[in-house]
Design a protein around this nucleic acid. Structure first.
Length: 588
RNA sequence: GCGCCUUUAACUCAGCUGGAUAGAGUAACUGCCUUCUAAGCAGUAAGCCAUUGGUUCGAGUCCAAUAAGGCGCACCA
């Protein structure tokens, strides 16, 4: 739980504030409240380790040029007892702070001391957050968009945990409503098709080759045309065929309603189990699978309608019940109950979000949405407002669409056609580590091309290997030294003072950054900050490795210090990969 | 037509709530393995930060307009 970067920033701020206080006391500074200033980490290290823009933002209040103000501040600054050993004025009036050797030793030491907890912060203060992600429709298999949502959601949830929040992961299962009807009808049509004369002919011609049968059935649009509003995916045919194999044609004699119900009851649990299985393969486990049907069964969906009616934000028009969302920030009003008496998808979804924020009382609910659902946000927030819940407690992370690229060629994904690329087949093709890393390489907001060829490639072009390689290198190095009897089991932070080549210094600086980056990633809901961190740390390690030999260090003291540094780097790499749930190979 | 997202090197992208000379990776070219893993490192070359205005000590970053691309705009989910 040590955060040396934050500590240094705080110290810099305090030094400046103290100094300003003394200037005011001496009458050298105006007594009016001074504007807030920034404490930042300059990109160029010749500008110091920490820089402060106080003199510039105070120029107006002082009625003096920034550099002159900076001089006044620096004259009053007291560095004793801090991690800084000098400050200087530069550029337009920046005050640059330079960290002492002591800080670097403390920073490296902190990584070893905190171990598997290094990087954790208490920023979240135990606030309860529910992260809902993927929530794929159980009427079919998951696609590439779900793969991105899964990687982002799972990683974000973990980041929030590291940042001190109490986090739960949840999958919302749409096991009720219109699309389940559609699912049933699709199954029934395929079942009927299979039982038809032509269907039976196909089955006997293809033997027991399920894939061949499905393709033939799918392609037979001549004798058995399918309507537009059903699921056409081949997975539907597989279910229908399997049911037929297991139970025979008896169901054909029953009425349509019973056929649909029976087939849905057969296929839906299989699909839900399949979602769970595929996500597990992707290393995602949920704290809860929340079924939409429970909201219908326990009456909470109905209750929501009553509550909305009571709020005064509803009206009836053309036989339907409408929600006046346009009065609460949405672009138009929305239907709650259709003229046919069936509620829209919106109603249980409101009930679900109400359940999260009010019934279960989470401090924050985060949803990961595909960009194609972004229009949904204003109406959900409007509904929460109408219900007297705080819409700001709902945060939605919108992720842009993924294009799949193979052989330099793009193709679009569609769940409706028979040949969508599923999550499951994607994971058969590329390593899980690569998938999780790739989907978190860019911020959710960026449009993203997923290069299948690159993801499978085991080369330097593939960033995930670059990071894992750094880890494996360190493991091997430590093992080699151990074999020759050199271990640094115990040490004092002072023994790290001899690390002072630029490569060592930069490496330590990056080590100290992890807790800050975790906080930033949590704040911005952006897991890509952690993949970037791991890449940067790996880069700095490779550079260090090339210049600073551990085994052949000039003396044993340096050798020991470098070994400890390596252990610290390994720890930080491990922690950042663990956040992403990516493996840390000891050999490659 | 309206809303959301995007536009930075040849390609893919960083650039934290405005800060000092705009950074990586890939591709191209040049070097470095009898020495801890070359899946690595060093170097060269490459940019009117889409365009135009505005805000100020200071703009890739904020605001407005324009252009190009993506995604939405159901009594579907």
């Amino acid at each position: 739980m040590t955060n040396l970067t934050k500590l240094a920033s705080q110290q810099a701020r305090e030094i400046i504030l103290d100094s300003l206080g003394r200037l005011v006391a001496k009458g050298d500074a105006p007594e009016t409240p001074l504007p807030d200033f920034r404490v930042e980490i300059p990109a160029d290290k010749s500008h110091g380790d920490i820089a402060v823009n106080t003199a510039m933002v105070c120029a107006k209040a002082f009625k003096q040029p920034p550099r002159k103000i900076a001089e006044l501040i620096c004259q009053e600054a007291i560095l004793d007892g801090t991690y800084f050993d000098r400050i200087e004025i530069a550029g337009p009036g920046f005050i640059n702070f330079f960290l002492s050797r002591k800080w670097f030793s403390a920073a490296a030491d902190a990584v070893i001391k905190d171990g598997d907890d290094y990087g954790k912060t208490d920023t979240g203060n135990g606030k309860r957050i529910l992260v809902e992600f993927v929530s794929a429709n159980p009427t079919g298999p998951m696609h590439i968009g779900n793969a991105r949502g899964g990687a982002i959601g799972d990683c974000l949830a973990e980041i929030l945990k590291w940042a001190g929040y109490d986090v739960q992961r949840e999958f919302y299962v749409n096991d009720a409503g219109n699309q389940i009807q559609k699912f049933g009808r699709s199954l029934d049509l395929r079942f009927t098709q299979l039982c038809s004369e032509n269907g039976q002919k196909v089955i006997s011609e293809c033997g027991d080759d399920t894939e061949k049968i499905c393709r033939a059935i799918y392609d037979d649009t001549e004798t058995f045309p399918m309507p537009d509003d059903v699921y056409l995916g081949q997975d539907i045919i597989v279910h229908a065929y399997n049911y037929l194999k297991e139970n025979g044609k008896g169901l054909c004699e029953k009425d349509e309603q019973e056929r649909m119900q029976t087939l849905t009851g057969y296929a839906l649990p299989k699909n839900i189990a399949g979602l769970e299985r595929d996500l597990l393969k992707y290393r995602i486990t949920y704290d809860k699978w929340f079924k939409e049907s429970t909201l219908h069964n326990d009456g909470s969906a109905k209750e929501i309608i009553e509550k909305l009616k009571a709020s005064g934000y509803t009206y009836e028009k053309e036989g339907a019940l409408w929600f006046k969302s346009s009065e609460l920030g949405d672009e138009k009003d929305r239907v709650l109950v259709r003229a046919n008496g069936i509620v829209t998808y919106f109603v249980p979804d409101i009930a679900y979000h109400y359940n999260k924020l009010v019934t279960r009382g989470y401090d924050k609910a985060i949803d990961i949405f595909g960009a194609d659902h972004h229009g949904y946000i204003p109406r959900m927030k409007a509904a929460l407002k109408a219900l007297g819940a705080d819409p700001d407690k709902l945060d939605i992370v919108i992720m842009q669409m993924v294009n799949l690229v193979r052989n330099g060629e793009k193709y679009k994904l569609s769940k409706r056609s028979g040949k969508a690329v599923t999550l499951s087949t994607l994971l058969d093709e590329i390593p899980i580590d690569a998938a999780r890393f790739f989907f978190n390489l860019r911020e959710p907001d960026s449009h993203f091309d997923f290069d299948l060829d690159l993801a499978v490639e085991k080369s330097s072009q593939n960033p995930v290997y670059y990071v894992q390689y750094a880890h494996a290198r360190i493991c091997s190095l430590i093992a080699n030294l151990k074999a020759e009897g050199f271990e640094a089991e115990s040490y004092t932070p002072d023994e790290l003072d001899c690390l002072d080549t630029p490569q060592e210094i930069e490496l330590i600086r990056k080590l100290a950054e992890l807790p800050v980056d975790i906080d930033n990633a949590a704040k911005a809901y952006d897991p890509a900050k952690i993949t970037k961190y791991s890449l940067e740390l790996a880069t700095l390690f490779h550079k260090f490795y090339d210049v600073c030999s551990v085994k052949n260090a000039e003396n044993d003291a340096l050798k020991k210090a470098r070994l400890i540094l390596c252990k610290a780097v390994r720890q930080a790499l491990r922690n950042s990969l663990t956040i992403m749930n990516i493996s840390c190979p000891e050999k490659m």
